[in-house]
Design a protein around this nucleic acid. Structure first.
Lengths: 112, 112
DNA sequence: TGAGCGACTCACCATGAGGAAAGCGTATAC
DNA sequence: GTATACGCTTTCCTCATGGTGAGTCGCTCA
């Protein structure tokens, strides 16, 4: 049984959900992890040209705190840290796909 | 046949789509128009306490420019303007629903 | 003459997200 | 001794987003 929404609660809940994806780099990070991919910090740095280390660390921390990605540290020197999606993070895929599908349906006249 | 995406293009397209929904009030406006509802400017002002006139006008203009809502002016005095969703705007509903569904699946442990 | 309605527009200000660059800590390689 | 690797953290700065409050326009009613 689904939760019942009013205009206000639905808007709030969507905003909360979107808030987890806000941040200029989060989607890029997520899409580099979708499908069970595992990436190290330095892999993500290479995969995402232009991101600063501060931003990469910050966005990863937020994604981790929000339960979207999990972080695995190997206590060695030099350090090694792996990032992957949690199950719930992976479950975001169909929702984003719905959004992409919607975007594809956009009438030509508006697209410019 | 669906468009093919790479991690980068998918992220870009999702960001473009989300960009249309960015702005503190847009989702609230959209949810007040979902289901074929028609609202006047002053209705929206009443439905969305706390929004300033500047913001309401700005967000409506952007939604209109992006093809999500349509605007109908009745040339009378005092003026009357009605806002409603376009067909494509209405089509956003299932995508947002997918997002809400995803949010509902969030494991308890992370929710705090 | 002037007040009011409805739907805005304008000028100005404050907050915060994000960018650049440097520092940190440990260990192995030269 | 010092350079490199790795995964960050810290500081400072900029600029876009959004907020406030007042002004505008055409017309009608008193």
């Amino acid at each position: 049984m689904r939760k019942a929404y009013t205009a206000v609660t639905a808007a709030e809940d969507v905003e909360k959900a979107l808030h987890l994806l806000e941040g200029r780099w989060k989607l890029l990070i997520l899409f580099h992890l979708f499908g069970g991919q595992v990436q190290r910090y330095s892999d993500l740095e290479r995969l995402i040209p232009g991101i600063s280390q501060k931003m990469l660390a910050q966005q990863l921390r937020q994604l981790e705190a929000d339960g979207l990605v999990s972080r695995k540290v190997y206590p060695q020197t030099p350090p090694k840290v792996e990032y992957r999606l949690t199950e719930w993070g992976q479950a975001l895929c169909p929702a984003l796909d719905a959004l992409l599908y919607w975007a594809e349906q956009r009438p030509e006249a508006d697209a410019g």
